[in-house]
Design a protein around this nucleic acid. Structure first.
Length: 756
DNA sequence: GAGCCTCGAGTTCC
DNA sequence: CTCGAGGCTC
């Protein structure tokens, strides 16, 4: 971006430039004072600050009381700093029945190549219903504590955690580096006492002990946390500089010796029957434990086996949570509404008469799709014995996994006489386009992807979401409001927001892509109306004219558009623009994910990014590719994990004129980072490896997981792109083909020698 | 072609 | 968290 010298800046450009510089400086300041890496050099920072001062000197009317030229240097006062976890904090897979647990045991044996009679000990411990926490000790001293966050990045709550009596400040005998993981919770007695104190003091009470614990830990005022009765159990670990034992149980014993609280109801089990027996005992004693548990966690005890089993994308293979049956409640289903997602999927949602389920008030529940409402599964087999769901019905509700409300059943004896089967819409309730449901698929979709406001809004929400551009302060509510106001129609508009705001929100180039506020569709735009109502009280909501009138009235008093909104001021507007500014630099993987191509989620986006390396290479290949034909198509399909459906979706995206134009507009604002090459130290990183024949010292799944951990790509078939073929006994045509192509063929022993 | 395993997409409430 | 569908293995 070329910068005009200050003396050349006309009164037209100055406001936009002030906004841009303020945003940059605020962002740099936040990055400097937060945990993030600095985003610009000190010299560049000083240069930009001087430039802002010069413009302000020239156009004094643009100077703001809280101008970044004066205030930067002060630390930002809001929220907790972010902390990247050195090792991801994972969640657990779930089991709901003894059969699921037996299947977990079988799956592990299969992966490890163990027989049904081989010993395989597991630990079984109560699953505490609290919030997970990571505590880092260096040289035996507590140096950092962080919440789980999204598993990759959490919040720095060190000072709060220091006030928790259960958690030692010092761990004598700990290795030099030890990251302890566990659960923060509150006992029933202390929860009740706290709520009484809160009520007496006229403060809000908490719905359940878990919320109380979470709310207490995340207090900006540490003295409040200190006054709250928080407790802790250690049950896992992240980075360590030395081993603490050969097994899970030994490690927990070491924790106990060091002074960390561990749960006394943890047992070592030799068989699945032992595990289920302990589950039954804990289920029976659940009410008398004095704190909430929501199941039992089983872990493979032997740490060397844990290491061999490794991790799936979000859960370890060596652990599972066996949940207790969920609590249910009865209520009436008032209405069935249809939501439209970013891919156009029409999802029915039940609006319920609010009811308490497991300590939380539930008023919505997902109904999945038309078949689910009609009482059939995707194969046409009856669910709920074929009972359908109707508006007006009495239903039992539970929270699947204690989180997502679902309808368990319908009470036909209380069905109103006038209740009629739900009729699934044939046209999109938002844009009126035709709805199609492909043969054999469960989901019905709106076909108006180019005109549907609901799809556009959902795509924008996806774009700013955590795994995509992750723009702080730019969530669903902001997207709803800004889109309804006509400020953003597509991702590129986000990056021109600051300049347009400074210049009075000039019309978008692509304003045709925006639609007026919907007024006639009951419920569908509820969320949007709520977002607007909060930001513009008394604006005569629900119609575009009312919003416009409200804004122009406030603008006439001199505020910039964003700062006119309720709850927004100059400062918060600048913070938002600063957050947007920091995300102009984006990784290729996040960009690909953010595009919202069907079938391309976070994981596949990473795969594509690593395979093509640069945006230019990726785009060129996709534009050159022809469906089911040619070298580019073959290369795309050769990526392990990419099949014809995903490949087709990606190629289609890069051939759709509207998507390409929007992409051009977007990337003009971005600086795209090339994908990192896979771990370069290992001798096989970046190589494409194929396994064939019988593997003798490890299973195929294990070999694949291990090779990928070392940065290799594992493919199923031999091609010119294959680097290494690992051939066990019984290898046939693949070996012949590899030899023809002159590809290196290794025995399993040679392979193990190669990778160390 | 069947049967895993994994991922994507949709959803709730705080 | 769950369900459905895609992709891979056998």
């Amino acid at each position: 971006m070329a910068e005009a010298t200050v003396s050349d800046l006309g009164p037209e450009e100055a406001p936009g430039e002030v906004a841009r510089l303020s945003a940059l400086l605020t962002a740099a300041n936040a990055a400097y004072h937060g945990q993030d890496a600095p985003i610009m050099s000190d010299a560049e920072f000083d240069r930009l600050r001087r430039r802002l001062s010069e413009i302000e000197a020239r156009y004094p009317e643009l100077q703001r009381a809280d101008s970044a030229s004066a205030t930067v240097g002060a630390p930002p006062a809001k929220g907790f700093a972010k902390v990247a976890h050195r090792q991801r904090m994972l969640s657990l897979a779930n089991a709901f029945s003894g059969d699921d647990v037996a299947e977990f045991d079988r799956g592990i044996r299969r992966f490890l190549g163990l027989g049904p009679e081989d010993p395989l000990a597991m630990t079984a411990e109560p699953k505490i219903d609290g919030l997970s926490l990571s505590i880092r000790y260096e040289a035996g001293h507590l140096v950092l504590a962080a919440t789980r966050g999204d598993g990759r990045t959490g919040e720095n709550v060190t000072e709060n955690v220091r006030t928790v009596a259960d958690i030692p400040q010092d761990l004598p005998g700990a290795p030099d580096i030890l990251e302890v993981r566990g659960e923060i919770y509150m006992t029933h007695a202390e929860f009740r006492a706290l709520n009484q104190r809160q009520a007496h003091a006229g403060q809000k009470t908490f719905a359940n002990p878990r919320n109380a614990a979470a709310g207490s830990l995340r207090q900006l005022d540490v003295s409040i946390t200190a006054a709250r009765p928080l407790r802790f159990f250690a049950y896992a670990w992240g980075e360590t500089s030395g081993p603490l034992g050969a097994t899970q149980s030994e490690t927990l014993a070491r924790f106990r010796d060091m002074g960390l609280p561990t749960n006394p109801l943890t047992r070592r089990c030799e068989t699945v029957a032992d595990m289920l027996a302990h589950h039954a005992t804990l289920a029976k004693d659940r009410a008398t434990l004095g704190y909430d548990i929501d199941g039992v966690v089983y872990k493979v005890d032997d740490l060397s086996l844990q290491a061999r089993l490794g991790l799936r994308s979000t859960t370890p293979r060596w652990a599972i949570a066996h949940k207790f049956p969920a609590e249910v409640a009865e209520t009436t289903l008032e209405r069935i509404e249809i939501q439209v997602g970013r891919t156009g999927a029409l999802s029915p949602v039940a609006r319920l008469t609010p009811v308490t389920v497991g300590g939380v008030v539930v008023s919505n529940a997902t109904l999945h799709n038309a078949d689910y409402i009609a009482g059939r599964d995707s194969e046409g087999a009856p669910i709920r014995d074929g009972r359908d769901i109707r508006e007006g019905d009495w239903v039992t509700v539970y929270r699947a996994g204690d989180v997502i409300p679902k309808i368990q059943d319908v009470d036909l004896s209380r069905r109103p006489a006038d209740a009629r089967p739900f009729v699934f819409p044939t046209h999109c309730p938002v844009c009126g386009s035709e709805v199609v449901r492909p043969e054999g698929e469960a989901v019905a979709r709106c076909t108006g992807e180019l005109i549907c406001a609901a799809q556009a809004v959902e795509r924008l929400k996806h774009f700013v979401s955590r795994a995509a551009f992750d723009i702080e302060g730019f969530g669903a509510k902001q997207v709803e409001a800004f889109h309804a106001l006509g400020w953003i129609a597509e991702p590129a508009d986000i990056f021109t927001l600051a300049a347009r705001d400074g210049a009075g929100q000039k019309t978008l180039e692509n304003a045709a892509a925006l639609q007026p506020l919907e007024t006639g569709v009951a419920g569908v735009f509820e969320e949007r109306r709520r977002a607007l109502a909060e930001m513009m009280p008394g604006s005569g909501l629900g119609d575009t004219d009312g919003v416009e009138a409200y804004l122009s009235e406030i603008r006439s008093r001199g505020a910039t558009p964003l700062a006119t909104l309720h709850g927004w001021g100059k400062r918060s507007a600048e913070n938002l623009f600063a957050a947007i500014e920091t995300r102009r630099r984006i990784s290729l993987a996040r960009l690909i994910f953010a595009l919202g191509i069907r079938h391309v989620g976070e994981s596949s986006a990473g795969l594509l990014a690593r395979s093509y390396g640069t945006f230019a290479a990726f785009r060129a290949a996709m534009e050159a590719a022809r469906a089911h034909d040619g070298p580019e198509w073959a290369a795309l399909n050769d990526i392990d994990g990419v099949g014809a459906v995903m490949a087709g979706a990606v190629v289609d995206f890069f051939h759709a004129p509207a998507a390409r134009a929007a992409l051009d507009r977007l990337v003009a604002h971005l600086e795209i980072e090339d994908a990192e090459a896979p771990a370069s130290e290992s001798p096989i990183s970046g190589k494409t490896v194929v396994f064939t024949g019988t593997l003798e010292t490890m299973t195929r799944a294990e070999a694949k997981a291990q090779a990928e951990g070392l940065g290799a790509k594992v493919s199923g078939s031999v091609s010119a792109k294959t680097d290494i073929l690992v051939a066990g006994p019984g290898a046939g045509s693949k070996r012949t083909k590899a030899e023809e192509l002159g590809i290196e063929v290794l025995s399993e022993d040679e392979w193990r020698a190669r990778i160390g």
